[in-house]
Design a protein around this nucleic acid. Structure first.
Lengths: 76, 76
DNA sequence: ATGTGACTTGTAGTCCGTG
DNA sequence: ACACGGACTACAAGTCACA
């Protein structure tokens, strides 16, 4: 599992914890709903600017976003 | 200071700690030497796949890479 | 409300150089 | 060793119709 997929997984995790829909989060982040879908599913090679938008929309510091065990290598 | 700039700053920090040249790191990461320059200077909107390449080349887990106080918001 | 394939446009990323 | 620039190609951004 690469970082691209892990990122999507983490976004979904944090989004669901807040009981937000993809649409609502996409709106907060200022990106398209369908684009958010493909991000969460690890289909897109997202750029750092959009990464920042999404993390900001999740209301979590970047540091905390990546402070998860899924970001320690060797995960499936 | 946005995430793009913070990323470059952090890359430079970790690279210099290992006494690697930009060229050497770029080679390890499999990306262009001139591109590494602009990444460190926060000039490029890097994609997550290249982010992963760089972090991997730095021999640090993703989690640790972002476990720095510069990634708590409100930094200059 | 979420997911997918297909598409166009802008830019990421490469490769050649310069100081 | 680092920064920057021009010219090029590959690919991400962004949107849509449809399921």
């Amino acid at each position: 599992m690469n970082l691209q997929e892990l990122f999507g997984k983490r976004v979904r995790e944090l989004r669901q914890k807040q009981e937000l829909s993809q649409e609502a989060l996409a709106f907060k982040a200022g990106i398209d709903r369908t684009y958010m879908t493909s991000i969460e599913n690890g289909k897109r090679n997202v750029s750092i600017q959009n990464i920042e938008k999404v993390i900001t929309a999740l209301d979590v510091p970047v540091k905390d976003f990546f402070a998860s065990d899924i970001f320690i290598e060797g995960k499936k």
